[in-house]
Design a binder for these strands. Structure first.
Lengths: 206, 206
DNA sequence: TACTCATATGAACATTGTTCAATTTAACTC
DNA sequence: GAGTTAAATTGAACAATGTTCATATGAGTA
């Protein structure tokens, strides 16, 4: 039995293939939507059998969920990169970053928010938790801007704001529905924040 | 050749079966979600062959789209029923009515907003138009409340508000994600409108 | 090298949307 | 009412796709 830090040839191939499968699957979802993702297409593109996909991920939902997990991780990383010096600018930055990410990866985000499990199996807890964590990123700047509000109020407000922005973006980018051009969407979101922060007694100062 | 207003036995059976198919399909979507809708289940429940479903609706998307069409019609009817005397009350009423409808028919609304067509066939224009019309229901009360704003601004604002409320509700009711209890959601939406209308210079006066 | 067992394979199966040749039946004619 | 016709209905067969599992392969080990 070898030591922990050593990686056998087996493990190398395994993790290499695992990465390949995810890369191909993500590419297909991003390009043609979740509905166009097929086990056989993935297996062929990777150069392995369909059985290997199942060995690696258990079932096809496993592939999708892993892609979704990485999507929310990437989103959160981007959101964490928004400068936090000025809380007002941070709020605008969070919304605009979300818009950029959504516009650039619309199908990946739709996969995250719209995918339903087979039967009624529960959605993995860690993904839910990560989405909640992303929601909570508006919390700190709001606390700074509304020092007198209690924590529960702020938590509710941050979820409300995030959901509202999500709604504006996701419907706005729904090309089959309304198809607002991204540049106009940006303006729409800025105005939304102007008004809403104004309503909270926070002067935009942009 | 008979006259127009007469309905042949054939047509009676046809339209009766058409209604049955839609009823069953809507029931399945409402109860177990769009993913659980199967042609064979519908055919068996209606008591006809799968071929008849295809004769009537062309393909399975046709059934789904017809259910969706009736969903948005029902929603619009409910929204039109909101009293229009007081424009502020009307805005709150529209949001709350949307919440009630969404809470009562979550799977049907998800089918409306999340269903993707096979291949990349376009979504039927009339459904899109009806969704846009529903969006526009906030337009008249906003015009009354902001008589100095130009029409384009109002149109944008009404779409923004509708999308924001939609986001708060659809994510709030997403049981796998956050699962805000409906009563709390109602409060959340009222507060959201309080703040946002306040930011627009409209005093809540509820 | 020989042996062992984890992994990979892909043919076979299960489910589900779709088609269409054969059958049934309403509508019409006499 | 019997016969004719055209349209609707049927369901077996097909196609696409997720899933399984007996078998083959090959990495690890002595």
């Amino acid at each position: 039995m070898n030591n922990v830090q050593e990686e056998s040839l087996r493990d190398q191939k395994k993790s290499r293939r695992r990465r390949q499968i995810l890369e191909i699957a993500r590419g297909i979802i991003a390009a043609k939507g979740l509905r166009s993702l097929k086990v056989r297409d993935v297996a062929e593109a990777v150069g392995c059998s369909v059985g290997s996909v199942y060995n690696e991920f258990g079932d096809f939902d496993g592939v999708i969920l892993t892609v979704n997990r990485e999507t929310v991780q990437a989103l959160t990383a981007r959101l964490r990169g928004v400068p936090a010096e000025d809380p007002v600018r941070q709020l605008y930055g969070l919304a605009e970053t979300y818009l950029d990410f959504f516009a650039g990866h619309a199908n990946l985000l739709r996969s995250l928010f719209e995918h339903r499990m087979e039967d009624d199996r529960p959605y993995p807890d860690d993904i839910l938790q990560m989405v909640m964590d992303a929601f909570a990123l508006m919390h700190p700047p709001l606390v700074r801007l509304l020092p007198d509000a209690d924590d529960v109020k702020i938590a509710l407000l941050s979820r409300t704001l995030f959901s509202a922005v999500h709604g504006i973006i996701s419907l706005g980018l729904e090309e089959r529905m309304v198809a607002v051009p991204p540049q106009m969407l940006r303006q729409q979101i800025e105005q939304f924040l102007d008004v809403h922060l104004g309503g909270l007694g926070i002067l935009p100062q942009r």
